[in-house]
Structure formats: structure tokens, C-alpha cells
Amino acid sequence: MTDLRIAIVGFGKIARDQHVGAIAATAGAALAAVASRNASLSNLPHFATIEELLHKGPPIDAVSLCTPPQVRRAQAAAALAAGKHVMLEKPPGTGVAELDPLIAMAADAKRTLFATWHSRYAPAVEPAREWLATRRIRSVHINWKEDVRVWHPGQAWIWEPGGLGVFDPGINALSILTRILPKSVFVTAAELAFPANRQAPIAANLTLTDIGDTPITAEFDFRQTGPQSWDIVVETDQGRMSLSRGGRVMAVDGKIISEAPDEEYRELYRRFVVLAATGASDVDLAPLRLVADSFLLGERTIVEPFMD
């Protein structure tokens, strides 16, 4: 079987830090080109735009879209129309409804559309899901706080409409939540803090539940300094289960049950190779729906301006 020839579109920090190495480590995948206005990779064909890549580039089978979400829909549509498989970095778009035409295009073309949630592939997430499946859940709390200046330095798009602000990392927590809980969850209330000079929130507190009225709360904040917090705590009838370090460590009543190195992006590309072999798609919009509902229900407050 020949390798899936992949072009990365959008070559920012996450593409350099995660995608390049993950493709190199994935059997059946090969990085064939880069499309980016501002960056390139030595020894690889480079193009300024996806249009130039598709018309003038080397033969490719797939594109991995690592551009800001505001432009991904049009890029995905162009790639699917050209007969390419498409991987979407998270979030898959700026709205929920814009994904429906892409799903239909992929099905018609028998090409893969893969909306990725990399945090679901953290090593302790599946053990947590399996453990919770046989317990009665009493409550859930998410504490997801990080320093935007460390993780998104100079990335102005994240503060623009569609950039999601603090929900860019927060959606990672929601992607884990919707994977590990046995019942679907929904938002009942939200408090959103918007810097006076920005169009997206810098912090958010959410109240959620499921059909059984399980209390679920989440705290997201982009202003965290010092140690970063990526934790989910679930109280059950058989003890307290915690996921920490973004889903890499699972513990029950303080005892570590599962811990492993981070291979989230390698797992994404392994999944992409399998999907592309048959043209199957994987598009779960549950995390994005929760973010959209948070904006719909959110009570907004204005806080001090944010200066990068």
C-alpha cells in the first residue's frame, strides 16, 4: 500500500510542533508539501495558498488544515472538490451549520472528512471512559486554565469573531467530557468575560447537565500564570476519578491508574490513514455545539483590556 501523501495547509506553531513529527512517525503517511503565506519547511514544496497547492503542487492525496478556523470551511470545500481527503484541526469551523455541506461533499466524493479532537486521544481518556461506564456519576468539574501568552503568542485571530478565545483550549476539555460520559450533555447557563478590546472571551464559567440532571461545571481562563491546569474531576458512587495533564493521567481517589506519554497527534494521523483507506468520515460536532450554546446562553461581562 502506498503512503497517504499529505499537505499541511497553515504552518503555524501547532503545525510545526505537532503535525510534522506526527506525520513522520505514522506508518502509511508522508508529508508531501506545505501551503502557508508566512512559513515553509526545508526540502518540501511550498505554496502560498491552498489554491496554488491544488493547481500547481505535487501529487497529494490529502490536506491537513491547520489554518485559523475562520477560513477552514472554504479551504476544505476546495480540497474536497479537488478529490482530496481532509483533516480539520480543532475547532472544525466557526459555526456548526457550516460543517453540514462539507459532510455532504465528502460523502458524495467518497472522500474522508475528519474533524479532529486531539485531546480525546490523550492516553488516559479511554481508560476513564471505560471506568465511568460502570459507575453512577454524581458530579463533574472541569478546571481548564492556561496562559494565552505562552500557548498563542501573537495570534490575533483567536480574539476575532470565530476565533473562540478561551474556548479554543476549553473545547479540548469539552471534547474529553463528551467522550467519557455515558450520556449526552448540554449547557444550561454560561458566564463569559470579554476583554474591553477583544471580540472573544478570555474566561468562561459553564453550567451543564445531562438528561439525568447530573451537575457539571467548567471553569476556563486564559489568564493563568505559573502552573497550568487541565483537569477534570468526576465524583462517583465508587470514588473520585480525576483526569489531569489534559487527559494524560487518570487517578482514582488519588491513586494513579493510567499514565502514558503524549501521542495524541500520532493517534490522529493513524486514524486519518485508516479512514482515508475507505473514504469514511469522522465528524463529531458535540464539543462545538456546546461552545455555540455557551455563546447563545452566555451572560457577558466586560473586563480589563488584554494586551499581548
Rank of each mutant, 00 (worst) to 15 (best):
L177F: 04
S184G: 14
I180D: 07
W157V: 01
A196V: 05
S184E: 15
V185E: 07
T178P: 09
W157M: 02
P195L: 04
G165P: 03
G162T: 06
A173C: 08
E160Q: 03
W159E: 00
D210E: 07
G163Y: 00
P153K: 09
W144L: 07
G170Y: 08
A190Q: 03
I180C: 09
P201V: 04
A204E: 00
V166M: 01
L177A: 08
N205K: 12
P161R: 00
T207F: 09
N205C: 12
I180L: 05
G212R: 10
V148A: 07
V185G: 14
G170D: 07
T209Y: 11
N205I: 13
K183I: 07
T207A: 11
I180M: 08
A173W: 15
A156D: 14
T214H: 13
A173S: 15
W159R: 01
A204G: 06
Q199E: 11
P153T: 01
T207I: 10
V187P: 14
I158Q: 00
V166L: 02
G165S: 03
K183P: 10
W151R: 11
G154N: 04
I171E: 07
D213R: 14
G170Q: 11
L192K: 04
F167M: 01
L174G: 01
P201G: 04
L206R: 06
S175Y: 04
G165R: 02
A204L: 04
T188N: 13
R179S: 09
D213P: 06
L206G: 05
T214Q: 07
T214A: 05
G162R: 04
D147V: 07
S175D: 04
P195G: 05
W157F: 09
N143M: 06
R149H: 15
P215W: 13
V148T: 02
F186D: 15
I211T: 14
I158A: 01
G165T: 02
P201D: 04
A190N: 07
G163H: 02
L174N: 01
D168G: 02
I202T: 14
P169A: 04
A204I: 01
N205M: 12
I171T: 12
P215N: 11
I202F: 10
I180S: 02
I158Y: 00
W144F: 06
P161L: 00
P195S: 11
A173M: 12
K183F: 13
G154P: 08
A173R: 02
R149I: 10
T207Q: 13
H152P: 03
T207H: 14
P182K: 04
T209D: 08
R198D: 08
V185H: 14
R149W: 01
V150S: 12
A190S: 08
I211S: 15
K145M: 12
P215Q: 10
N143K: 08
L206C: 12
T207P: 14
K145Y: 05
T188Y: 10
W151L: 08
I176V: 15
S175G: 13
W159H: 00
G165N: 03
D210F: 04
W144A: 06
V148K: 07
A173T: 05
D213A: 09
I211F: 15
T209Q: 12
A203M: 07
W151Q: 10
G165V: 03
H152W: 15
